[in-house]
Write a protein that binds this DNA or RNA. Structure first.
Length: 196
DNA sequence: CAACCGATTTTT
DNA sequence: AAAATCGGTTGC
């Protein structure tokens, strides 16, 4: 497995921040997707060690969207998407990868934000792409349905200052065959890339 | 119960 | 451009 060395979070930073509350996720999915950029995803491994990195790439999926797993209603796989906002929706895909989502909007709505990339620093590439992100952080189906809103959870998300909206780039989503035209992929650009 | 497909990644 | 690889979903 790839090293997590550079993903460690200082205790001071960790203790000074709260988890994003469930209410953060109980908003329009595209709004939550944009707001998640820059927030800190934290993974507590079985060893007790913490790894963390800011979210830099996400995609929004809503119930009315044909590319969404919840489009045809609740199934065994996607039922957690219909649960309360702030839960982790993890699914297994292509026979070898897991992908991590955050459930959005109120119970009964099948919506979520797919986490596609974190800014890991030195170990370039190991956190870019939803499959690699989960592989690096050892996230699998055992985490499906866990709350991301409390520090006792092995996966949670910490608050962070809102980013400059000018740094957010919108593009079509990756790897889907339906509703390709929607610009529901959001990427956080480097602050110094705004020169013009 | 067989067949097909997929919110990916890596290799050819 | 295509393989790797398998659970979920669909259709017979």
């Amino acid at each position: 497995m790839d090293t997590l060395e550079s993903l460690y979070l200082s205790k001071d930073t960790y203790n000074s921040r709260e988890c994003l509350p469930s209410s953060f996720y109980d908003r329009k999915t595209q709004t939550v997707a944009r707001a998640l950029l820059g927030k800190l995803l934290v993974r507590r491994l079985s060893t007790g060690e913490l790894a963390a990195a800011p979210i830099v790439e996400v995609e929004a999926y809503t119930q009315e969207d044909r590319a969404c797993h919840a489009y045809k209603g609740p199934t065994r796989r996607c039922q957690v998407m219909f649960g309360p906002p702030g839960l982790a929706y993890v699914y297994f895909i292509y026979g070898m990868y897991h992908c991590l989502n955050v459930v959005t909007e109120g119970p009964g709505r099948g919506c979520a934000v797919l986490l596609r990339g974190l800014d890991g620093g030195a170990p370039k590439g190991i956190l870019s792409g939803p499959g690699k992100l989960c592989r690096t952080l050892a996230i699998d189906l055992s985490h499906n349905g866990l709350s991301l809103c409390q520090k006792t959870s092995p996966i949670h998300i910490l608050e962070a200052p809102a980013v400059d909206p000018a740094r957010i780039l919108e593009t079509p989503r990756i790897g889907i065959s339906k509703d390709k035209h929607l610009n529901w992929r959001y990427l956080l650009q480097e602050a110094d890339s705004l020169e013009k």
